[in-house]
Simulated assay, not measured.
Amino acid sequence: APGRQARQAGHVPALLLLVIHGHFCTCQEEAERGTYGGTLTTSCVYCPGWESHKKWLCRGNDWDSCKILVKTTGSEQLVKRGRVSIQDNHSRHTFTMTLENLQWDDEDTYWCGIERTGIDIGYKFSAIVEPVTMQCHYGPEWETYVRSWCQDADLSSCTIVVQTNGSELKKNHVSINQKMHTFSMTIWGE
């Protein structure tokens, strides 16, 4: 692919024209965070003059071999591919990438970049998927009942992932911590 050949291991020196979240012309690596099952959104800001160039998002630690997940057409049209989307805003000189329904294996190194003749320009960032904590409140009349978590909304057919009668239980990357009239569940990575 032409974009791949254009991107070379000329890493990210001071000539870099991309930024993350509004810091103009910086070259430091950033970490973007999202919660498991949620959405991670990040933006790259570019200098004027690059509006009609195609913008892309690729995944992988090495600039030479990262896999392009999604690329704009050079317009402001939203481009979506599976759970990943990208959209350019020419007037704001910003393109925004979104990864929906975050999974633990989405944690990786990503690059946002601009396709151009010669060597593409890009910016490296890490995606971090964080645990999810949910709280359930109940009245005193439910104090002696078993607390459980089920991952399906249909109670008649759901499979219980974890349950407890006590104050805390950890099982299969889920923990339940019970306090007075509240229990919280945390789901974390593998």
Results as ranks from 00 to 15, higher is better:
Val84Ala: 03
Asp106Pro: 03
Trp111Ser: 01
Arg83Cys: 00
Lys55Trp: 11
Ile68Cys: 10
Pro13Ser: 15
His137Gln: 04
Asn101Arg: 15
Asn61Ala: 06
Arg83Gln: 05
Met185Ala: 15
Trp50Lys: 07
Glu107Gln: 15
Leu99Ser: 14
Gly118Val: 02
Gln87Phe: 04
Met97Asn: 13
Asp154Gln: 11
Asp154His: 12
Ile128Arg: 15
Lys71Arg: 11
Thr26Val: 03
Leu69Arg: 12
Thr72Cys: 02
Thr109Asp: 09
Tyr123Glu: 03
Gly3Ser: 14
Glu30Lys: 13
Ser43Pro: 07
Cys66Met: 14
Leu102Trp: 09
His21Phe: 09
Arg83Gly: 08
Asn101His: 07
Lys55Tyr: 12
Gln87Asn: 06
Ser65Ile: 03
Asn89Phe: 14
Ala1Val: 03
Lys170Cys: 05
Gly60Pro: 01
Ala153Lys: 10
Leu57Val: 05
Cys27Asn: 08
Gly166His: 06
Asn89Glu: 10
Glu32Cys: 12
Cys58Tyr: 01
Ser52Phe: 08
Gln163Thr: 00
His53Gln: 04
Pro2Trp: 11
Gln103Lys: 15
Trp50Ser: 07
Thr42Pro: 03
Asp62Met: 12
Met180Gly: 08
Phe125Gly: 01
Met97Cys: 15
Thr133Phe: 06
His173Trp: 15
Cys66Asn: 13
Cys25Asn: 13
Trp188Thr: 00
Gly10His: 01
Leu169Gln: 14
Ser85Leu: 04
Gly37Asn: 14
Asp62His: 12
Glu141Thr: 02
Ile119Arg: 11
Ala127Arg: 05
Lys171Trp: 11
Arg92Ile: 02
Lys170His: 15
Val45Asp: 14
Val161Thr: 08
Lys55Cys: 00
Glu51Val: 01
Tyr145Thr: 02
